[in-house]
Design a protein around this nucleic acid. Sequence first.
DNA 1: ATGACTACCGCAGGTAGA
Length: 261
Amino acid sequence: MRIATFNVNSITARLPRLLAWLESSGTDVVCVQETKCSEAQFPYEQLRELGYEAAVNATGRWNGVALISKVGLEDVVRGLPGGPEYEGVEEPRAISATCGGVRLWSVYVPNGREVEHDHYGYKLDWFRALTAAVAEDAAGPRPFAVLGDYNVAPTDEDVYDPAVFAGLTHVTPAERAALEALRGAGLSDVVPRPLKYDRPYTYWDYRQLAFPKNRGMRIDLVYGNEPFAKAVTDAYVDREERKGKGASDHAPVVVDLALDA
DNA sequence: ATGACTACCGCAGGTAGA
C-alpha cells in the first residue's frame, strides 16, 4: 500500500496537478493539508471519478485537512479531541480514519507565527492535545501513523541554514520537545529519502528561487507506531511535484507499506 | 537580472504562510 502526505496549499488551485499525480504515483491514500476551501467546495466528484473517496474537515479560506483513499475510509473522526481553540474558533486542522487496516491522521499543526505571538502558545497547546489524543493508538497493535505538516523542523539538519532560523518558530527547543513527547508516546519519525541532494526537505518558499537553490525545510512528517514502522518498505520526498507551474510550496512525502494480508 | 511568491476574498490590498 502506498500512502502519502501532501500540503497542497489550496486543493482548488492544485486540483489538476493533484489528480494527475494521484494517477501517476499510484497513491492509495493521501493525507492532505491546507485545502483552503469549504466542505461544499471540496472536489469530491473529480476524486470519485478516479476511484477515490474523501473525508474532509474544512471550513473556508484557511487551513482544512482531508483523507483521500481508494482502499477504504472508515470510522472518520473530524478534528482534534480536546484540542485548543484559537480566538474562539476550533480550526479544521485534524481528521482521522482507518484506511486498508491502517489508522491514519492528517494534521496541519498551527504555524506559530512568532515566538512572542499567541499563535505560538496555541501551537504548543495543540501539540499537547495531539499527543494525548493519539496515545492509545500509538501504543496499540494496529499500524497507526500521524502524517502532515507539523510546522517543526525536527533538527538543525532539517533546515538549509540554521542561522537563518535563529529565534524563529519551527526550530525552537519547545517545538522540538513537543515532537519528542510525541515520540515518547510510541511514535517514530519515518524519515524519507531525498531523491536529489542530501537532505529530505519537504518545503521550499516560493520566493527568491528557494527551490532551485534547495533552500528548504523538512517539516512534513510521518510519525508511525512500531507496527507501522515495521511495515515501511520505502519512503521518499517526491520533489518532482514541487517543480514547474502550478506547484504547491510543499512536496508530497510518499511511504510504501507491506502489510500482512 | 536594476528582480526575483502564491492564494484567498473580491475588486484593493490585507491576511497568511514559514
